[in-house]
């Protein structure tokens, strides 16, 4: 299997801060797998992702993403990745379709090709009906989907998603999980961060627990399951969530396991 991401001793110290935000993190990810970075608020998940996506310069360590060095070959990295930030990064005034065409054009697609790709992604993410409305009027789940669609315009080899489902209702959450699974089936490697064990349990092949910027525990999901016993569901009792999904959702929790 091809290794698409490899980080060694990745470190970030912000000026004027005593403790490092990310402190010597090692990571490794193969094609077609999902790596979940787990950790509480402030654990360093976003900063790690921002370094890997060339948005923030590391102060120590090194990393290769999709075969390119994040320090010396930033633009090569950017050509091969897709990034979905913690907060939807979209033009709120423009429609969903216009956003897709805009970023498609920026990625080098000709006008007709950009419109074509936008149409494909709108279908794929079930946004055809809302395509003409300003993104500012979208619901949280739709926003997340259009954000993900924009990140996929150039068919990235590695997709980075920061807290994909924070603030989403269970139905929207499951539809996003399905979208991620579909990508992974097609061979895309995914790095996501989450505060939810449940999410890591549903999506991840590999898990890294961050605490205060350092790796507290890392391994494949199967190894960690053995260590940890059954996963805890933190926020909602399962029975209520199942009820919710039968009430509002097209699928039940069981089908998604």
């Amino acid at each position: 299997m091809t290794v698409v991401l490899e980080a060694e001793g990745l470190t970030k110290r912000f000026p004027g801060r005593q403790a490092a935000a990310v402190d010597g993190v090692d990571l490794r990810l193969e094609e077609g797998r999902v790596l979940a970075l787990l950790g509480a608020n402030g654990a360093g998940k976003t900063t790690t992702l921002r370094m890997l996506t060339t948005l923030t310069r590391p102060t120590g360590g090194s990393a290769r993403v999709a075969g390119a060095d994040i320090r010396t070959s930033g633009s090569a990295v950017r050509r091969r990745i897709g990034v979905v930030g913690q907060y939807a990064a979209l033009d709120e005034v423009l429609s969903g379709r216009a956003n897709l065409v805009l970023f498609g054009r920026l990625l080098g697609l000709a006008p007709a090709a950009a419109r074509q790709r936008a149409a494909e992604l709108l279908v794929q993410f079930d946004l055809v009906e809302a395509a003409g409305r300003p993104v500012g009027q979208y619901s949280g789940g739709m926003r997340r989907r259009i954000d993900l669609a924009v990140a996929l315009i150039n068919r990235p080899r590695v997709l980075f998603v920061d807290e994909p489902t924070t603030g989403l209702d269970p139905v929207a959450r499951r539809s996003l999980w399905d979208a991620v699974r579909e990508l992974v089936d097609k061979g895309t490697a995914v790095v996501l961060t989450t505060q939810y064990l449940e999410e890591a349990d549903a999506l991840a092949d590999d898990v890294v627990f961050l605490r205060d910027g350092s790796v507290a525990l890392a391994g494949s999901i199967d190894e960690l399951r053995l260590l940890a016993g059954p996963p805890r569901i933190e926020t909602r009792p399962p029975s209520l969530e199942d009820l919710y999904l039968t009430l509002y959702g097209p699928t039940t929790a069981e089908e998604n396991r």
């Binding site: 948005l55 930030g85 920026l106």
Partner: peptide, 13 residues
């Protein structure tokens, strides 16, 4: 504020 700046910086432009 809308993180568009970051998205643009994450693109190969």
């Amino acid at each position: 504020k809308n993180a568009i700046t970051d998205r643009l910086r994450s693109l190969p432009i």
